[in-house]
């Protein structure tokens, strides 16, 4: 245990990126979907617009998975030929995953709530669906920025 292999940390990073960001997206899509079902109960023809809004908080989970995939690929987990890295490198990989893990989790949920409000708005004013999407996109900005930092931190870590 004292000769820690960095792979463990890298794995933890990938797990957090995919798991936490995915949790945020799942909660966000869930909240939005509940609102969508309410609107559809009144008027099934609004399914398209509400589905678009429900899809928006789904991106955080994808960003997280994307980061996890990059890390897994770098340490050779996908091909099965694991590389040997020291603990410091492993920790760097872990930390590079944290921005999208944390911001993906929180912004996914927050965006879901905004999207749910937008879906309720579509119920009353279907012509304004685009504005609801823009409100939701404001929240996503921070997931995009976190992904950017995760990526920039990750890309040149020597393995």
């Amino acid at each position: 245990m004292f000769e820690l292999n960095g792979i463990v940390f890298a794995m933890l990073g990938a797990a957090l990126a995919s798991g936490l960001a995915g949790t945020g997206s799942a909660m966000g899509c869930g909240v939005a979907g509940e609102a969508g079902a309410g609107v559809i109960a009144e008027d099934p023809s609004k399914f398209g617009a509400t589905l678009l809004l429900q899809a928006l908080p789904g991106t955080q989970g994808i960003y997280g998975t994307l980061m996890a995939f990059l890390v897994l690929n770098k340490i050779g987990a996908i091909s099965g030929n694991f590389v040997t890295i020291d603990a410091a490198t492993g920790l760097m990989l872990l930390f590079s995953c944290l921005p999208i893990a944390i911001a993906g989790w929180t912004s996914g949920y927050a965006q879901g709530k905004t999207a749910a409000a937008g879906i309720v708005m579509v119920g009353k004013r279907p012509s304004e669906a685009a504005k609801g999407m823009i409100y939701a996109a404001m929240v996503e900005t921070y997931a995009v920025l976190a992904l950017l930092i995760s990526f920039l931190a990750f890309i040149n870590i020597p393995v």
Partner: peptide, 21 residues
């Protein structure tokens, strides 16, 4: 805020690569 141009470009490319792999 315009860094999202790059971020979305990268995420699109990597998502595609993930599916291909």
């Amino acid at each position: 805020s315009y860094s999202r141009l790059m971020a979305l470009m990268l995420s699109g490319a990597v998502i595609a690569q993930v599916f291909n792999s």
